[in-house]
Design a binder for these strands. Structure first.
Lengths: 366, 366
DNA sequence: CCTGTTATTGACACCGGTGACAATAAGTTT
DNA sequence: AAACTTATTGTCACCGGTGTCAATAACAGG
């Protein structure tokens, strides 16, 4: 290994030393760029670019040297410049319309969990599904920011208009929903049905026979899933949900309050009720409270979601816990997967909720 | 006005027609760039750039023509390219550690309100103030994304380490806090003190004389403000907060539960209590409920924040409402102001909370 | 030794904008 | 009329990366 060959790289470069000298000279005056790295390593910027992008077309020694320089001077590629060249950004969007703050925040935290350690950042984009410009708005947002991809959460994730638009402009996406609405690599399924089944079993096992259900907003997939799951669970015990005992709510606390009041007027009254979410369950509890009745003595109440409200009211709600944060993480991971070479989607893309027993349920007084 | 002059612009260009033809030819195949606009308008891209950036150095007719082209072909400057040239991005960061989902979401909505119609987008960055890497993390985030600016909310907004870091790297910021901690153009003040005063007045006017206070986490500015304001309000009625009646909470529901229990053991018991936030107030209500006592009959309870929990529990909380969303909007507006020429900061930068009376307060029994 | 192949690297243009400064034309001054 | 201003516009390099394709060297085969 002669060190004199014309085109032979000077194998004697001490990358670390060279880089440390650079550090000393520039004392963090400016962030190093790819050009600095190239110069220090004695290669072209294109080669550095190859290293950054894990190209296999780089000699191992060269790669090591460049990596040493990168480490030492603390070089980080500029996402903006990279994005400009790639014609896309390193931003992930979360487009949502779910009004529940806890859901939103947990989902954000989960997505950020999934993004941690990557070059991606999260841009949030709440929207109003009822607005006639919302598709246009979203398109504008995605195109202008050249988003790497977006994560859609209920209920907007159930709207094909938005996914059609995204496919049309070639933007990757992952939908979070209670049933599989799309190809596997584009879905994270929350399996509300299984959770609701557990709620039904719990009530049946406590001995309830006259059981009511307060449905969620009909236009939401989860409303159907939660109802179906509940009916399935009851069926396992030979119980049927009588039509009289099915009340229509819309997922709000107020609707729970209303339907809770109606519940009390039923004859014979149910001994238990499953509300399709905690907000409505809390409404039912408050309705009883206003009527001077106690939960669970007069009525057992089960919710769904296990949001904060479930533990803030008294009695605390027995409810179905859904791992929102994990769901967010899975969604982000799946979104980033779509770019990596592993054509196979890893992980199940399914999450399973579970029942949390608290004080709002008990055996019927009989 | 000869149309033959050598360097005279062809005044006969019909910008609209030319642009519509472009539209027809390209049928949305790709987004138009500044080069397209320049070509269609028959000017250099630099001149288009001037129009985009509202430079006064452009002839009015030229500007109109370019604007027509821009309108017609729907050109929008690429934020990434612009950012690269400007050495900064069109992203605003929200750095926060407040764990309350409703606060976070409302703040985000408010910031987005303030950003609407601008080229800016919001990137969220929750963090852990106790982590020893959190400053470093934040710095990394801000520098890598070259953020236009960041909005800091409590309690992290009270931490000078982060603002020092931001000033050092030359990043604009706006702090949201309960008192003025910084220069006017960098502050939005929430005036918790005034809100707490209102809470005190309310209780005093109802006839309460033995009044207790559950303090928030001592390291939060708001905890001091809320306490001081409350004491000031009481003082207006010649009342003093006895040391025995000051209990130390930490803003969590659990601490409210604990301190609520302690409250009951006081002799003589207070007839009313002001908890420094709704979570603790809800805890107090639950503590009474567990002890078999009624609110407000046994004890009037006032909270602070007017988050959802205030209306989900029974009785619903009398509390102090803070306009979180407006605060977010103001913060965003102030952040963007700092760049515009108007050296004077407009708007007050102050928001005032107000009392919302509900069922958790009443005159004392006696 | 000549030629084809593979491995590695670099040159150069380009992504879509902006900054610095020069160039041009028209109007003003002397 | 020459020289100076002012208003307006363009040229060219650059921001910090990547894509395309050519160049080079080392190696294998004939």
């Amino acid at each position: 290994m002669s060190a004199v060959g014309r085109k032979v790289r000077n194998t004697a470069i001490d990358y670390r030393q060279v880089s440390e000298q650079w550090n000393a000279e520039h004392q963090g005056q400016r962030k190093p760029t790819i050009n600095d790295v190239a110069e220090l390593a004695g290669v072209s910027k294109k080669t550095v670019s190859r290293v950054i992008n894990n190209s296999p077309l780089v000699n191992e020694e060269t790669r090591d040297g460049i990596q040493t320089v990168i480490q030492t001077i603390g070089y980080q590629p500029d996402p903006q410049a990279r994005g400009l060249a790639f014609r896309r950004s390193f931003l992930v969007g979360m487009i949502y319309d779910n009004p529940n703050p806890q859901y939103v925040v947990n989902m954000q935290l989960g997505i950020l969990d999934g993004l941690r350690g990557t070059a991606y950042e999260l841009v949030v984009h709440p929207c109003d599904r009822d607005s006639d410009r919302f598709i246009e708005d979203a398109k504008q947002f995605v195109e202008l920011q050249k988003l790497h991809g977006v994560i859609l959460t209920p209920s907007i994730s159930e709207d094909d208009r938005i996914t059609d638009m995204l496919r049309e402009i070639g933007c990757a996406y992952v939908r979070v929903a209670s049933i599989a609405l799309d190809m596997e690599q584009r879905m994270i399924v929350t399996n509300d049905r299984i959770g609701s089944r557990a709620a039904a079993r719990h009530l049946a096992e406590l001995g309830h026979r006259r059981v009511a259900f307060i449905a969620g907003r009909g236009s939401f997939r989860s409303a159907h899933e939660r109802r179906s799951g509940f009916e399935e669970g009851l069926a396992e015990f030979g119980l049927k949900l009588s039509p009289d005992y099915i009340l229509q709510g819309n997922y709000t606390f107020e609707s729970g309050l209303e339907q809770g009041a109606k519940l009390l007027a039923l004859d014979p009254p149910p001994t238990a009720v499953f509300a399709a979410n905690d907000e409505m369950a809390a409404g039912v509890v408050q309705a009883l409270r206003i009527a001077g009745l106690d939960v669970p003595e007069s009525l057992s109440v089960v919710g769904f979601d296990d949001f904060e409200v479930a533990t803030r009211i008294w009695p605390r709600l027995t409810t179905v816990h859904s791992p929102t944060r994990d769901i967010g993480r899975l969604a982000a991971e799946r979104l980033l997967q779509s770019e990596s070479a592993d054509s196979e989607v890893s992980g199940t893309g399914q999450t399973t909720p579970h029942l949390v027993e608290r004080e709002s349920t008990a055996s019927p007084a009989s």
